[in-house]
C-alpha cells in the first residue's frame, strides 16, 4: 500500500468515540425499582428492632401506632433508647424491684412517670394531642412472662395501660 492508499484508509476508519449499550442496565434497574417500590414503607411509625433483640412472630397485621417505645431485651430495659435498668439474663435484679411489691420496678416507673407528665403537659397546651397511655413494647421472644408482667404492671401504674407488643409479621 502506497502513501496515498494509507491516507485513504485512515480517513475511512470509524471515529474513536463509541456508544455504550445501556439497554440491559436500564432493564435491570427497572426490575430493582419495582422490587424496592413494593417493599417501600408508607407507615408513619417505623420500628427498627435492635440486632440483639429477637421479636416474636405473629400473624397480626395491625400497623404500629405512634406511641412510647419500650424495649425489653435480655440485657436490659430501655425507654425511648435510654437504658433504665440492667437485666441479668432476662431477670430483674432484686435491688431494682420494690421490697413491698415485687412486680414494681422503681426506676422504670420513675422514667415512665416522667414521660407521662411530659406528654400530659404537652397535651394541655396542644389540643390536637392527647395522652392515651399507649406504649409499644419490643420484647425478646425468649423472655418469660414473669419479667413482662413486671414491666406491664409498672407501666400500668405509670398510666400506660394500653400495651402493644411489637411482633414480626408473617404475612
Amino acid at each position: 500500500m502506497g502513501r496515498k492508499g494509507m491516507g485513504k484508509y485512515i480517513d475511512k476508519r470509524t471515529p474513536a468515540t463509541f456508544k455504550i449499550q445501556i439497554t440491559s442496565m436500564v432493564d435491570m434497574f427497572v426490575i430493582l425499582l419495582v422490587f424496592l417500590l413494593k417493599s417501600y414503607s408508607t407507615s408513619p411509625t417505623q420500628i427498627n428492632p435492635d440486632k440483639n433483640l429477637a421479636l416474636p412472630v405473629s400473624t397480626s397485621s395491625k400497623p404500629p401506632v405512634d406511641a412510647l417505645k419500650l424495649v425489653v431485651s435480655k440485657a436490659g430495659i430501655f425507654v425511648e433508647d435510654k437504658k433504665i435498668i440492667d437485666l441479668n439474663q432476662g431477670a430483674v435484679n432484686v435491688s431494682d424491684v420494690d421490697a413491698s411489691d415485687t412486680n414494681f420496678i422503681r426506676a422504670l416507673y420513675t422514667e415512665l412517670d416522667q414521660q407521662a407528665q411530659k406528654s400530659k403537659s404537652i397535651a394541655k397546651v396542644n389540643e390536637t394531642l392527647e395522652f392515651d397511655g399507649k406504649v409499644i413494647m419490643q420484647a425478646d421472644r425468649d423472655l418469660p412472662y414473669e419479667i413482662l408482667r413486671k414491666v406491664m404492671y409498672t407501666s400500668m401504674m405509670a398510666g400506660y395501660s394500653d400495651v402493644k407488643i411489637a411482633v414480626m409479621s408473617t404475612r
Binding site: F29, L32, L33, L36, L37, S39, Y40, S41, Q46, I47, P49, L55, S58, S60, S61, K62, P63, P64, V65, I136, M152, Y153, S155, M156, S161, D162, V163, K164, I165, A166, V167, M168, S169, R171
Partner: peptide, 21 residues
C-alpha cells in the same frame, strides 16, 4: 430514585398485637 428507596425500604415488617392491661 434507587438510593432514596434503598434508605426507606422495609425488609422485615413489624406489626403490633393489642394487649390492653
Amino acid at each position: 430514585i434507587i438510593p432514596m428507596l434503598l434508605l426507606s425500604v422495609v425488609f422485615v415488617e413489624i406489626t403490633v398485637v393489642e394487649t390492653p392491661v
